[in-house]
Design a protein around this nucleic acid. Structure first.
Lengths: 357, 357
DNA sequence: CTGAAAGCGCTTACAG
DNA sequence: CTGAAAGCGCTTACAG
């Protein structure tokens, strides 16, 4: 009969990993009992429990995830699916998610995809079917597609979406409440004394673009400032579109004294353009962005913007998703699903020239 | 007996996925034959082959990866392990890797880790043993640790490292040849007429820091320019350290007319600092970075820097890793393992003031 | 509280 | 060129 020692050697030096049978044999119990211990099931005697745990530790045993997956009909894999957010949004969301995956025995698979592909949604469904992923986290703007959600529901795939507009049951979404942040921006600009304000809207296919626009316009209106049609320009959330929009706004007959761009990429495009035109920031032009990407604090002057708390969102989304994977919808509903982004005041805002000495 | 139709309905509407047994039954062959088709093995008759393929397509069948994994003793999972590169480096490497993973039936698991943890390397080993990952891609600076590599070898884990200094067999690394790019930078500065040049070195624990330093110093020396001790300052590859280093350099008795920072983060720190001090870029100060992060082209003036071709590196690394996973070391050696980064000339370089009108 | 048998969906090793 | 049997390492369903 093998001694524990021999098995340890066999297990860790020779490289052949011990199995549940090895543990069972050495602990003098059945595989089922070891299985109970692994899965923290009840009905294991205290003595048996500690004996099995000891052997597991001695052997440095960990269950084979493929075998567990096959038996459980689960993969213990979660996927993060996204089309085109910025790099730091992705990595922040990943960090937040991973912090919850690991202690729960899940791994995170990344799945970026090409939004220009017509088969985008079907490809995602194929991916999920093929890999048997237990659940997916959807990042914006992909997360805004109800077509995709319906397809996910059709295959009964667990999902949680990160969104900026409430658009699902709380069990299935984490929502960053743009509205408050956008109002803060409007009020901040008003308080500084700005009346000629330019707005760079995001792409039309995104719900958050429309919402940021509506809320910003209404908040200004409430303060007696009207956002005219010629003060609204349309960007694509890219740096280059920020440059283009800035040119439109700043070369108009009545250039604004402040510009709110719907994301940092565009805001930085505005900054660069203004600086090239010899316009000083913030004394001659106030600029506010949205996202608080790492770059926002690494431009000069440092950009005033809105922090989305993406890592926290990734964490909450994962917590919900794990609850869903365990068929605990009640728990998923309980977990916080709204985050309030905060306005980060840095150096790109000041009163308009007219109010300065 | 079930008709194909019924099975299709059962398979895709009800959600119960068809198995190899369904395919075998409907095609009138054994499971082993279906298995041969799935794995593109030889010894399948043409007629049998097309019959099986037809059924697979009709059923929209895809093999269960957990079952395959269990039988093959493989997970069909690759992991990307990293500690602290910048966000775009990570996402670029992921894109490059995924392009190769998918067509080969592999998925990519992300595994960021905390370099400040003493148990870092052992945690990685545990992660690999636990998940049964088939192979790992190591990103810098983690990829430079020989201690980690030795531990990976001990558990016979396939790996490929992305490195800036040749440090392994070509089957196990993709190497970006800094030397050439650094020489290009030195020669570019010399050609512009700079003689008082500042250098911001990266952190001491990184081999590439030392190499960039040595190569830069030697290349300048060859052109008759000496890099004095007071012209070398020590950064940490962060924006803030770039700011600090810039202050040291620019407030010295003999400030340089050009600064080469070992990465873009620091270079942008230098830019911001210079601009705050009222120093014009590039007419009064030339700046060159390294990495070509997205931000480099989104600052003003746009930063001259070196593009590392990270996505391409991710692709090549994955190709090598897949070859290793198939025990084809010969193939892994064949795949290109050196990439030459290119100097991207933008707007932050110009002749020194003394040579200008 | 514990365990023997059958099964998850594939593959390997073998036979013909 | 094809297939029947056994096995990968777990779990479920059941029995006691």
């Amino acid at each position: 009969m093998d001694s524990i020692k021999e098995n340890i050697i066999e297990g860790s030096i020779v490289g052949k990993k011990p199995t549940i049978s090895d543990v069972a044999r050495l602990a003098g119990v059945s595989k089922k009992t070891v299985s109970r211990v692994i899965n923290s099931e009840p009905n294991v005697g205290a003595k048996t429990l500690s004996k099995v745990k000891k052997v597991i530790e001695d052997l440095d045993y960990s269950p084979n995830p493929q075998a567990r997956g096959l038996a459980f009909s689960r993969s213990f894999l979660l996927a993060m699916i996204y089309d085109n957010p910025n790099a730091s949004f992705i990595t922040d969301a990943m960090y937040g998610a991973l912090g919850q995956c690991r202690p729960n025995g899940y791994e995170l698979v990344v799945h970026p995809c090409d939004a220009t592909q017509a088969s985008l949604h079907d490809d995602i469904i194929k991916f999920i079917r093929r890999t048997k992923i237990d659940g997916v986290i959807l990042l914006p703007p992909l997360s805004e597609s109800n077509d995709l959600i319906n397809k996910l529901k059709a295959i009964k795939c667990n999902y949680v979406r990160l969104v900026s507009v409430i658009s699902d049951d709380v069990a299935h979404m984490v929502h960053f409440n743009d509205r408050e942040a956008v109002k803060d921006i409007a009020e901040h600009l008003i308080a500084l004394g700005h009346r000629d304000i330019g707005f760079i809207k995001g792409p039309d296919n995104s719900k958050s673009s429309a919402e940021r626009h509506d809320v910003f316009r209404d908040a200004l209106e409430q303060n007696g400032v009207h956002l005219g049609a010629n003060q609204i320009v349309f960007g694509a959330n890219t740096f280059q579109s920020g440059v283009d929009c800035a040119v439109q706004l700043l070369k108009s007959d009545n250039p604004p004294t402040a510009i709110f761009a719907s994301n940092d990429e565009m805001a930085i495009g505005v900054m660069v353009t203004a600086q090239k035109m010899g316009i000083d920031i913030p004394s001659e032009l106030t600029i506010i962005g949205f996202d608080d990407t790492p770059q926002a604090s690494k431009v000069w002057p440092a950009l005033t913007t809105v922090n989305l708390k993406v890592k926290e969102m990734g964490k909450l989304a994962t917590l919900k998703l794990l609850a869903l994977c365990n068929n605990n919808i009640g728990l998923a509903k309980t977990i916080k699903s709204e985050l309030v982004p905060t306005l980060v005041r840095r150096e790109t805002t000041a009163p308009p020239p007219i109010l300065r000495g």
